[in-house]
Simulated assay, not measured.
Amino acid sequence: MSTTIPNGVWPVMLTPFTQDNEVDYKALEQLVNWYIEKGVHGLFAVCLSSEMGYLSLEERVQVASFVKEKADGRVPVVASGHISDAISQQIEEIKQIWATGIDAFVLVTNRLAAPDEDEAAWKRNAERLLSELPEVTFGLYECPVPYHRLLSPELLAWCAGTGRFTFMKECSNNLVQITEKLKAVRGTPLKLFIANNPHVLETLRLGGNGYSGILANFQPDLYVWLTENWETDEEKAQVLQDYLGASNLFEGRHYPTSAKYYLQLEGLEVTLKSRSKQATDFKVTHHREIEQLRRFNQHMKQTLLN
């Protein structure tokens, strides 16, 4: 069982593409270094933000391997990438991606049961994975695509009780559910990182472990400060949380193109190319929105956190 899952900020990584629509590994290396230089505590590769559904299995394996290699032990790396419907095919995907040396393979919760199947069916498939992949350390991700499957606190307690799970990206955006899930995993190796940034500070106060969400592609260092200092400077932490919560309006706005433009402003050699969105839909007004968001991020760091 891996013990390298630290609390804090785990960005859901983007996948840069060349103008020819190939994975841009030069830009991906820059991106890995940018996240780490901003102080993040871990990296979540081959996820929805990585456009994993638009990557071949070979690309998913290569991206996971590359990120793990370039992180070079500075932070742990988890990855997902089982996008098939059949459990037998998912097992093969998991085997190949786990072989890259990642610290946990993150199970997408909607892959283990169909929308009309109950949690008993989900548990049966999870048991099969645990049995057939005894060497794998797992995580969980309540990914909203192709459908949103939230785990009940009871099922999450079962997962945590196996001792095989270390990481969870929780996506309910419901503080009541988050509270019950935190109770369910207490005292186990499973750590809970929320995806929905309006609840980050509240969740930390309840015993949560940090943030793993889209806005860590725009404001990673602000989330790092919040997760590391919320107990020692409560007043600044609340002001910062209020700002980060308001920034949530940018989360789904022309993403991931918007995040790639933000990275261009940060000096990374990243194209606006994406396999899931058209860069031409990212208009001049959207450029201005991201430019202004970046300036406000810089203002918050200079005036509030210094």
Rank of each mutant, 00 (worst) to 15 (best):
V23A: 04
V23P: 05
D24M: 06
Y25I: 06
Y25L: 08
A27C: 12
L28G: 00
E29G: 14
Q30V: 11
L31N: 03
L31C: 11
N33R: 12
N33E: 14
N33A: 11
W34N: 10
Y35D: 05
K38C: 11
G39E: 06
G39I: 04
G39R: 11
V40L: 07
H41P: 08
G42H: 03
G42Q: 02
L43M: 06
L43W: 01
A45I: 02
A45Q: 02
V46H: 00
C47I: 01
C47H: 03
C47M: 06
L48F: 09
S49A: 13
S49G: 08
E51H: 08
M52Y: 14
G53Q: 10
G53T: 07
Y54H: 14
E58L: 08
E59W: 01
E59D: 12
E59N: 06
R60W: 04
Q62I: 00
Q62R: 14
V63R: 01
S65I: 01
V67L: 08
V67P: 01
K68V: 01
E69Y: 10
K70E: 10
G73W: 12
G73T: 13
V75C: 07
P76A: 08
V78N: 02
V78S: 05
S80Y: 05
G81V: 03
G81H: 05
G81E: 06
G81W: 02
H82P: 04
I83P: 02
D85L: 15
D85T: 15
D85A: 15
A86N: 13
I87H: 07
I87A: 10
I87M: 13
Q90K: 13
Q90Y: 01
Q90V: 08
I91L: 15
Q96M: 15
I97M: 06
W98L: 01
A99Q: 15
G101F: 11
I102S: 05
A104E: 05
F105D: 04
F105V: 10
L107F: 10
V108E: 00
V108L: 11
T109I: 10
T109E: 08
N110Y: 08
N110K: 11
A114N: 12
A114Q: 13
P115S: 13
D116I: 12
E117V: 09
D118C: 08
D118R: 04
A120G: 00
A121R: 14
W122D: 00
K123R: 15
R124Y: 03
R124S: 14
N125E: 07
L129E: 04
E132W: 06
E132A: 12
P134K: 09
P134S: 12
E135D: 15
V136A: 07
T137F: 09
F138Q: 03
F138R: 00
G139S: 07
L140C: 06
L140H: 02
Y141A: 02
E142N: 04
C143H: 01
C143F: 08
P144I: 10
P144C: 10
V145A: 12
P146Y: 09
P146S: 12
Y147C: 09
H148V: 03
H148Q: 14
H148T: 10
R149H: 14
R149F: 07
R149N: 13
L150R: 13
L151D: 03
L151V: 07
S152V: 04
S152R: 05
